[in-house]
Design a binder for these strands. Structure first.
Lengths: 180, 180
DNA sequence: TCATTTTCTGAACACCATTCAGTATGTTTG
DNA sequence: CAAACATACTGAATGGTGTTCAGAAAATGA
């Protein structure tokens, strides 16, 4: 995980890992089917990390304010852990193998959002009706912001150092847009 | 471009390309600095393609309805051309070299959205004030939807074949959210 | 101590992007 | 026409990649 986060998934080779742990490359294949399976292990941790972040930084009683916290926490998480975010949501590799992995892991974070939104909508605090659609939409805004920035597609907007502020404003405005 | 779109950027090797055009691998390096530079050429085309799509499919007189068309066109474009979309907005490679390339190309499509939003806001038709922030937000929703789907992160939501409808609803609802 | 199981090795395979000395072709000049 | 030059191309070599597998080493049990 340390190497994946420092150098990125692609640049971390099985040989580099083998060197670092002082084993031969072949040994790794006795424990993991292939390089992707190493990724799953890291992803499992990463999804847990995000959920933990939600649980500690997005626990306001008011579901609308909590929704705002969730959005901001997500964006901040992506900005603070770019390589980790990459592994979790941008990299191509996995998702083909164990569908359960994501229902159990990434799913928990999504459920956190879902539960919050459900409470908001039940209390008639938002301008939307469909919980699932709204959750998808909200996740998409947050993911869009983080991933476009991570892939340097927002260079035309402002300088690098300005981006956190801008992304924060963007997600803030979006949540405000949801509120009745 | 044909090979990039059929097999993806990563799986298309310089050797494969050399074979296909019946030249030696070395020859390619006489015309392109490296593999990434081949990508830029394709990206240039791709950005043009998206802009062309906007121009033909999002030209309603009413700026709000045009905004809706832009959103739906973008999502449809991403769903219809997954590999192309990947090259344009998800792949890691470029953005480091020629910043102008993107101001001139990807920028044109972004300007199309920007202009439309400006008209909407000038006519006081939307619930937002800041054009740039709203453009970023709108692009993020659309990109989020497309890229999460492309990377199979939405498997828990519905079956593959259901996704186009859902993504369409999501972007539709978002634009409706913007309207006063 | 010896047999058995478990763990590990590292060379080999088939790829990859990239480089570069050398060759072939085309063009221009004396 | 021939020699000089310019352009175009080659393909082997370099140093990387993920992955496999026969065989060696270490640990365990009798």
């Amino acid at each position: 995980m340390k190497m994946f986060l420092e150098d990125g998934y692609a640049k971390t080779s099985i040989r580099n890992i083998a060197d670092a742990i002082e084993y031969s490359p072949g040994t790794i294949y006795l424990y993991y089917k292939d390089k992707d399976e190493l990724l799953y292990e890291v992803q499992r941790d990463a999804y847990g990390k995000l959920l933990e972040e939600f649980r500690t930084k997005a626990k306001h009683k008011d579901p609308v304010k909590r929704l705002m916290q969730i959005g901001k926490t997500y964006v901040a998480f992506g900005l603070a852990n770019p390589e980790l975010y990459d592994l979790m949501f941008i990299i191509r590799a996995p998702m083909n193998v164990d569908e359960e992995l994501h229902k159990d892991n990434g799913g928990d974070s999504f459920d956190y959002l879902l539960t919050c939104l459900k409470e908001c909508i039940d209390k008639d605090l938002l301008r939307v009706k469909d919980v699932d659609l709204c959750a998808l939409q909200t996740w998409s805004v947050a993911h869009g912001l983080v991933s476009l920035n991570l892939r340097c597609r927002l260079k035309m907007m402002a300088e690098e150092k300005e981006m956190p502020k801008i992304l924060n404003s963007a997600i803030e405005d979006y949540v405000k847009l949801l509120i009745k």
